[in-house]
């Protein structure tokens, strides 16, 4: 349990069992991206932006809107953060790092450069993920 790394085949298979149990017990498949849409709606709303006429946030009985929170998936996403934190802290694997090693070798040590590319990568990736339906 406190070993830093587990065999990826074993950890993957255990994740598969976790998914089976989740679907069986609660009917929930794993997913995270819809939570980003709902949280974006919450942020826009609290920033005073009028999203009451936004088609995406209001269609399907507000499934993608701010009012759908809190729900299973939000807690699932929060749990991933917490689980990764607990796991890395208890095994001594936790490390604050702004620039990944492979990035540093190719593109240098600037956290700003890395942060900007990460920001735009996240934006493009999420837009694509939502467009593709997942």
């Amino acid at each position: 349990m406190f070993k830093k790394t587990w065999n990826p085949y074993v950890a993957g298979a255990l994740s598969g069992i976790l998914l089976i149990l989740s679907v069986w017990i609660t009917g929930h498949f794993f997913g995270t991206s819809t939570t980003f849409v709902r949280v974006a709606a919450v942020i826009e709303k609290s920033a005073g932006i009028d999203i009451s006429k936004n088609e995406h946030f209001t269609e399907k009985k507000g499934k993608y809107g701010a009012a759908a929170l809190p729900d299973w998936q939000l807690l699932f996403v929060g749990g991933i953060l917490l689980g990764a934190f607990i796991s890395s802290r208890t095994s001594g694997d936790f490390k604050i790092q702004s620039v990944p090693d492979m990035w540093r070798k190719k593109f240098g040590p600037s956290p700003l450069k890395r942060g900007i590319v990460a920001f735009f990568g996240g934006g493009i990736g999420m837009f694509g993920a939502r467009l593709a339906g997942g």
Binding site: V37, W103, G115, R130
Partner: peptide
């Protein structure tokens, strides 16, 4: 981000913007 990788944080902020843009 949970294991200390701060570039994950900038990615999350970007993803929230991407989600808003999609909407």
């Amino acid at each position: 981000l949970g294991e200390g990788r701060l570039d994950g944080f900038w990615g999350i902020i970007g993803m929230l913007c991407g989600a808003a843009l999609y909407a």
